[in-house]
Design a protein around this nucleic acid. Structure first.
Length: 868
RNA sequence: GCCGGGAUGGUGAAAUUGGUAUACACAGCGGACUUAAAAUCCGCCGGCCCUAAUCGGCCAUACGGGUUCAAGUCCCGUUCCCGGCACCA
């Protein structure tokens, strides 16, 4: 046995052993309880970053822990390999996205393997391979057949200089990231998945997911946003024809307070009004500038212009003025809203700005609003809270529900409205005008229209040698891809060049791992054994979109008749906190933005170690600080774990990452503390080495121990108990602490009868507690010390409750809630006895001064509080 | 702007159900070993006050209120930070 801890040798040997013994190959075995542990697969950006190390270490700890608990475990890995960064890299380096992606995968796979994760690599899945994306195409066609997929227009960000569609991420302050040009909104056709058809089920089955964090379920429920409201119409006459302007509201009780209606810039009414109104036409054009992002729309200055048109109030028949508002979105609801400035904050701001009338129709029973319409007066007099109707004619005095019912009934009688359930959730637009994605399997024929690619011609393969140049989709220039015979008439036709959103790829990979080698089916019977995923682990940033899309897709697969095994794909979810780092950038001369990677920068700190700025190493000039944020490819602020692994070894990297903070917590990256983690592992090794002879020959603990050794053994089992509980509740930082405390205790062991037995037992517990976190060092020591051949299949240690028993307890003594001392009581003492001892104590007598206590609170095993 | 989360020593954090706030570490300081350094080991380590030193007292879990015998933990309000907002993945 080496006397010095040498991670390189130990880790290479352990990994070789696992590899040769096929230790992590998962085989279906219906006689054993299965545990499918899945971490979100990485985008192959080039190198792992610390967020990956954190994510995959968490998954590996859970996998190895459950294996020791006797489960048949599956932990697979794959690559979310289509996406935008590959195209950006292609533009920068002139390398085709396919090559760049496959090179990155090869490198990152080596990195993952060097971390010693218990992964079954035979099930590896890569989404940019035809074997995988064939099934995207296959299911897409099934969805078209079932009416779950359909075509309509979508609004996109358009860069007028590059003549290309921009992702939201590529829009910075309303400008294209490469060109600096003002971004425009543009309407183009695209394919949608009707996720709203599943809205009710997606909402309802959140209740069937007790293993999901509440915060994620709340976010998803709010995102789906089911609300009961009223869809109602404002009638009007246009060119002599009777028309209706439809709106949706959740506040029909305020209908009598409507003082104007606002429509989107793209609304037909706006278009009509603009025909003879150049000023309005110009305003509508202006509304088309800027990004489509909701955050931008919600924070921009609200602007509007009157159309000169009027509609009728559906109940009173009064004239209501129609405005165009830049905050009304054509793609939401009806593209028009009724405005009640007295009881909606946004309408109020708009009405104040354009001096529109404000009519109070709800009272909160505070003072009536005669005074100036200042914001605080609005809050006090009006407000958006539900209340009782006033100034509303026959509805006066009604509360929210009664008013909505009465108004809805009156609208229905006139044929001008009805109650309606509305969702905030919108259908999922999946068309991307981009090269590096899964081709949409459709063919456009002049004669036959849009034709489905027949199943026997799938997959539609993406040519892998394109190099995008930033302007438009290169597939449009590929005659060999584009030109195809129409499957129906055999005439000349063209392939669809749009590709699918990469969220499609990641919506079902969990199922593919179960049948990764099946070329004839998307999933097969084996999915029934493994699914649902028992533990899914990934970043909290996926709380809504990815997790909702995956839940939706799983239900679609079920409804298409595939054997997915369950209605929900992920039984338990652990949402990892983000690993953050500082972000630095510079404006480019074109007006775009360029980010700097940590290795390109010289950071500057003040005396307290606080970051004050940074300089580029290349030109020694300062760069802009953009605050702190998620480690990401696009912001270039990821920290590569490679040097950490090379310097200290995988076990140190893993231990440090787990010890740094609880998994769900956001973590600002700092490598202070890595030394401490490494020092601890060196101590573990040294302890094993120094006590090797003692441990190898040790008998088992038998009979009563001396006080000191009994105390040590109690500490060992206390820490085992804590570590086991912490693994159950997935708080790995305190599992690491428990390991440290355990070693501290063992190192301080007193001499005495049975010392060898206590040490041998204690160290075997320590090794097993640590093994999920630091599998290599524990594997080596387990073998070297003769505990067994393979710690992987060692059972998880059991707490000996007898070792925890104490004869005498020390309780905290509080006087009036303040710590004033302690008392010793027999473990068997009852409440009355404890109270008597506490009151009789010298400390209590001093404070009581002869008087009787007003109250005594006894918390068994913890404290006594005397109130005087 | 909307939805979700967070804030505890110089730093990462602990406190599992309302019951000793700061476990376990990092950094720092002091010491041992050494010709020396590294490594290793030992000790100290929230702030203020009292004391020669102990003993002890007060304050402190982002900020302001509240409930309770008792609040980091529960309730109300505020600030700042992080994640998401539908074409980053």
């Amino acid at each position: 046995m080496q006397d010095k801890y040498s991670p390189r040798d130990i880790e290479t040997a352990a990994q070789k052993y696992w590899d040769e013994s096929q230790a992590f190959k998962a085989v279906e075995d219906s006689s054993k309880k299965k545990y499918y542990c899945l971490s979100m697969f990485p985008y192959p950006s080039g190198k792992l970053h610390m967020g990956h190390v954190r994510n995959y270490t968490i998954g590996d700890v859970l996998t190895r822990y459950h294996r020791m608990q006797g489960y048949n475990v599956l932990q697979p890995m794959g690559w979310d390999a289509f996406g935008l960064p590959a195209e950006n890299a292609a533009m920068q380096n002139g390398v085709p996205p396919a090559k760049w992606t496959h090179d990155n995968i090869a490198y990152m796979k080596k990195q993952l393997q060097s971390l010693g994760f218990a992964i079954d690599w035979e099930r590896e899945v890569t989404t940019c391979t035809p074997e995988y994306y064939k099934w995207n195409q296959w299911l897409f066609l099934r969805m078209l057949e079932k009416g779950i997929a359909y075509k309509k227009t979508q609004t996109v960000n358009w860069d007028p200089v590059d003549q290309t569609v921009l992702a939201n991420e590529q829009v910075i302050d309303g400008r294209g990231w490469r060109t600096g040009a003002l971004v425009e909104k543009r309407e183009i056709p695209g394919y949608y998945f009707a996720i709203t058809q599943y809205a009710d089920e997606l909402l309802a089955s959140l209740d069937a997911l007790p293993g999901w964090p509440e915060r994620v379920k709340t976010m998803q429920a709010n995102w789906i946003g089911k609300s009961l409201g009223v869809r109602l119409a404002f009638p009007y006459t246009l060119d002599g024809k009777a028309e209706k302007l439809w709106v949706f509201t959740t506040r029909a009780d305020t209908l009598m307070g409507v003082t104007y209606v606002a429509v989107a810039a793209e609304h037909p009414l706006a278009t009509h009004a603009a025909k003879n109104n150049p000023e309005l036409a110009a305003f509508i054009e202006k509304c088309k500038q800027g990004s489509v992002m909701e955050a931008d729309v919600a924070t921009m200055e609200k602007e509007g212009m009157k159309t000169g048109l009027f509609v009728q109030h559906p109940l009173t028949g009064e004239q209501v003025e129609v405005w165009v508002g830049n905050y009304v979105l054509m793609t939401y609801g009806e593209g028009a809203v009724m405005a009640v400035p007295a009881h909606d904050e946004r309408d109020f701001g708009f009405a104040k700005k354009y001096s529109l009338p404000i009519k109070q129709v709800i009272t909160q029973m505070s003072k009536a609003g005669e005074e100036a319409f200042s914001d605080s007066a609005w809050q006090e007099s009006y407000g958006s809270k539900e209340g009782v109707c006033i100034n509303s004619g026959k509805y006066d005095g009604l509360g929210y529900e009664a008013a909505v019912d009465a108004i809805a009934a009156d609208l229905a009688a006139k044929g001008l409205g009805e109650k309606k359930v509305q969702y905030r959730l919108r259908d999922w637009g999946i068309s991307r005008q981009r090269y590096w994605g899964c081709p949409i399997p459709l063919i456009h024929c002049a004669k036959c229209g849009t034709v489905h690619v027949p199943d026997d011609q799938l997959p539609v393969k993406l040519p892998e040698d394109c190099v995008p140049d930033g302007s438009g989709n290169p597939l449009k220039k590929r005659a060999d891809f584009l030109n195809v015979a129409c499957p129906q008439c055999g005439g000349a036709a063209e392939r669809e060049t749009d590709t699918m959103d990469t969220f499609v790829d990641s919506s079902w990979y969990y199922a593919r791992y179960c049948s990764a080698d099946n070329a004839n089916a998307m999933v097969d019977e084996r999915a029934k054994y493994w699914m649902p995923v028992d533990q899914y682990i990934g970043g909290i940033e996926h709380a809504i979109l990815h997790l909702l899309y995956a839940r939706f897709w799983n239900k679609v697969m079920r409804d298409v008749g595939l054997s997915v095994g369950s209605d929900e794909p992920f039984a338990n979810l652990l949402t990892q906190g983000m690993v953050l780092n500082h972000i630095f950038s510079r404006r480019t001369d074109k007006g775009g933005i360029a980010y700097f990677a940590p290795e390109e920068l010289e950071l500057e700190h003040d005396a307290n170690g606080k970051l004050v700025g940074a300089k580029s190493k290349a030109d020694d000039q300062p760069v802009d600080y953009n605050g702190i944020g998620t480690m990401s490819k696009s912001k270039r602020n990821g920290v590569d774990p490679q040097s950490l692994i090379e310097t200290y070894g995988a076990d140190t990297a893993r231990f440090f990452m787990m010890f740094a903070s609880p998994p769900e917590q956001t973590l600002e990256w700092a490598d202070a503390g890595v030394d401490g983690a490494h020092r601890f592992l060196k101590r573990v090794w040294a302890f094993g080495h120094e006590n090797a002879a003692l441990i190898k020959d040790a008998p088992t603990v038998n009979g009563k121990l001396g006080d000191e050794l009994a105390k040590l053994r109690r500490e060992v089992h206390l820490n085992l108990k804590q570590a086991t509980a912490d693994l159950q509740r997935q708080q790995f930082n305190t599992v690491a602490s428990a390991g440290m405390k355990l070693l501290n205790a063992l190192e301080r062991a007193a001499e005495g009868d049975q010392k060898a037995a206590v040490i041998a037992e204690g160290f075997s517990i320590l090794l097993r507690v640590l093994s999920p976190i630091t599998p290599h060092i524990t594997h080596a020591l387990w073998q070297e010390l003769g505990y067994g051949t393979d710690i992987l299949s060692a059972p998880w240690p059991q707490v000996d409750e007898a070792a925890l028993v104490q004869d005498e307890l020390e309780l905290v003594l509080q006087i009036n809630g303040k710590l004033r001392g302690s008392i010793k009581v027999a473990a068997s003492a009852d409440k009355a006895a404890i109270e008597a001892i506490a009151v009789a104590s010298e400390t209590a007598q001093q404070h009581l001064n002869g008087a009787a206590p007003k109250k005594v609170v006894v918390v068994p095993g913890r404290l006594v509080n005397i109130v005087c």
